[in-house]
């Protein structure tokens, strides 16, 4: 028997059979089944090739404007970064946000930061705190409030930072980490998002389509 379920935002994946004969990496994806009153739906990460969910939904930006993903997208694509104000991994990667924003702008990719931490909306991730953070870090791109974490749910975003890059048709071409070294920009060997944007501009297929990285869980309510 195999079993996966989510309690709140917690994914519980159970399997009973031979899973670790040679390590768990080779395990098949597990089936999903509700248990103990837990929610049956698991928010899986958006699949490559999927359309950008909720692209018309208007969200509040730190500027006070209401913006949708569609309105932010550029002629080449759209870069959505689930972020927040305090996660150490965001703070570590944040020194690369400006560079990413500049590169995106040059490539015709609209970039947006999204804060889905509804669980901290009355504290560290309030709109006022977001405004202060955006000003302090000199964000050059919109920083949106994701009310009720609905966008994060639709994307299957689990952590901050968690990046989703869409092409001109708003189809997902890359999801995962910004690069392969949160701690030190100078030691980056794989510049995942930059390379993916380069592929979009060149009209080529993105080579590395998914990556994973340690991050702070999105604080849903």
């Amino acid at each position: 028997m195999k079993l996966t379920y989510r309690m709140g935002a917690t994914v519980l994946a159970l399997s009973a059979a031979a899973f670790l004969a040679a390590g768990p990496a080779g395990a098949e994806r597990m089936n999903k089944k509700a248990k103990g009153g837990a929610k049956a739906s698991q928010q899986e990460e958006l699949a490559i090739g999927s359309a950008a969910p909720m692209a018309d939904r208007k969200m509040t930006d730190v500027s006070g404007k209401k913006l949708s993903l569609k309105s932010i997208a550029g002629p080449t694509g759209l870069l959505v970064v689930f972020s927040c104000n305090t996660c150490p991994f965001v703070l570590a990667w944040e020194d690369r946000y400006a560079q990413l924003a500049a590169q995106s702008a040059q490539a015709g990719v609209g970039m947006v930061l999204v804060n889905s931490n509804e669980g901290k909306r009355n504290g560290d991730d309030s709109l006022d705190a977001m405004k202060a953070h955006a000003k302090d870090r000199e964000y050059a791109v919109p920083y949106l409030v994701d009310a009720r974490s609905e966008l994060a749910d639709a994307f299957g975003a689990s952590r901050t930072p968690h990046v989703f890059l869409f092409d001109r048709d708003l189809k997902l071409v890359y999801r995962g980490a910004i690069d392969d070294n949160s701690e030190n920009a100078k030691k980056v060997k794989e510049d995942y998002v930059a390379d993916a944007i380069g592929s979009l501009v060149a009209g080529e297929e993105v080579e590395i389509k998914t990556t994973r990285s340690i991050g702070c869980s999105i604080k849903r309510k």
């Binding site: 994946a13 768990p24 952590r159 392969d180 994973r212 990285s213 340690i214 999105i218």
Partner: peptide, 19 residues
């Protein structure tokens, strides 16, 4: 070790969020 390698080795379902 790198996030990608560590996460992938432990579970193909773990996206990297903590705990």
């Amino acid at each position: 070790e790198s996030d990608q390698k560590f996460i992938s080795a432990l579970s193909d379902q773990w996206t990297g969020a903590l705990p």
